[in-house]
Simulated scan of single mutants.
Amino acid sequence: MKIPDGHQTIMPYITVEGAEKFIAFLKRVFGAKELLVVHRPEDGSVMHAEYSIGTSTVMLANATQAYKPSPIVLFIYVENIDETFHKALKAGAITIEEPANKEYGRTGGLKDEFGNIWWLVTPL
């Protein structure tokens, strides 16, 4: 099996209301890099987008009548959880669990304004 470059075996696909704003959140908080953005010809909304975050690719689209918003839970390794957590809060996320040291790393949880839950982890 040949997986396209920049993709992995399983990838999150997130459907949100306000994809452009969600993309801005991904860039601001996680330093996401644009790989591909395709707009719908009828209204210019995001039909399909791909962004790299670290070694992973996240796919997303603007919700439609046929494809409703589908928030998900993501577990993401970050270089500095405290810095990333603060960036997420400044970008509109709310705290689910403050960063704390656990057996698997320093971790904390956030919920973004689109309903997605992010568990951030920095290995100890």
Rank of each mutant, 00 (worst) to 15 (best):
V46C: 11
G108L: 08
A66E: 12
G115M: 07
F22L: 13
A100G: 11
Q8V: 11
H48K: 01
G105I: 14
D5M: 12
D112F: 11
A93V: 04
E83Y: 02
Q65R: 10
I81T: 10
N80V: 06
A100Q: 12
E98V: 02
T64W: 06
M47D: 13
D112E: 06
R40L: 11
E17C: 05
I53H: 00
V58S: 07
L26W: 05
T15W: 01
V58K: 04
V16G: 15
I81N: 03
V78R: 06
V58D: 07
E98F: 05
I94M: 14
D43R: 06
E79L: 13
D43E: 00
W118C: 04
V73K: 10
F25E: 01
G18A: 02
Y77S: 08
A100I: 04
P4F: 08
P12L: 04
I76S: 07
E113K: 13
K21M: 07
I96P: 03
G115K: 00
L120D: 03
A91S: 12
E97V: 10
I94P: 05
Y67R: 07
P69C: 05
F114R: 04
N116F: 13
Q8D: 12
I81P: 01
F25D: 06
A93Q: 06
L26D: 00
G92I: 11
A63S: 08
A24H: 05
G105N: 13
K33A: 10
W119G: 05
M11W: 03
I117Y: 14
L110V: 01
H48Q: 09
K27T: 10
A88D: 01
F85S: 04
V46P: 05
E42P: 00
R106G: 06
T15R: 06
K27Y: 00
T84V: 11
I117H: 12
P69D: 01
M11T: 07
Q65M: 04
S45K: 14
K90T: 14
V58R: 05
P123T: 03
E42A: 15
P123Q: 04
T15F: 08
K87Q: 13
V121M: 15
K27N: 09
H39T: 11
K111W: 03
F30H: 09
E17W: 01
N101Y: 07
S56A: 13
K68Q: 15
K33N: 02
P12M: 04
I10E: 10
P12S: 09
D112T: 07
V16S: 15
A93T: 03
A100W: 08
V121E: 10
M1I: 09
I72P: 06
G18E: 07
M11Q: 06
A91N: 08
H86F: 04
E17H: 09
G108C: 00
A61P: 02
I3N: 02
L89N: 06
I10W: 03
K2V: 15
G18N: 09
N116C: 15
V121I: 14
I14Q: 02
L124I: 12
A63L: 00
N80W: 02
H86G: 07
F114E: 08
E83T: 11
I72H: 09
L35V: 13
T107I: 12
A63P: 00
H39A: 12
A63K: 08
E79Y: 03
G115F: 09
P12T: 03
I96T: 03
A66C: 10
L74H: 04
N80H: 11
F75R: 10
R28C: 12
T57S: 14
G109V: 01
I3K: 08
V29N: 11
G108E: 00
T9Y: 10
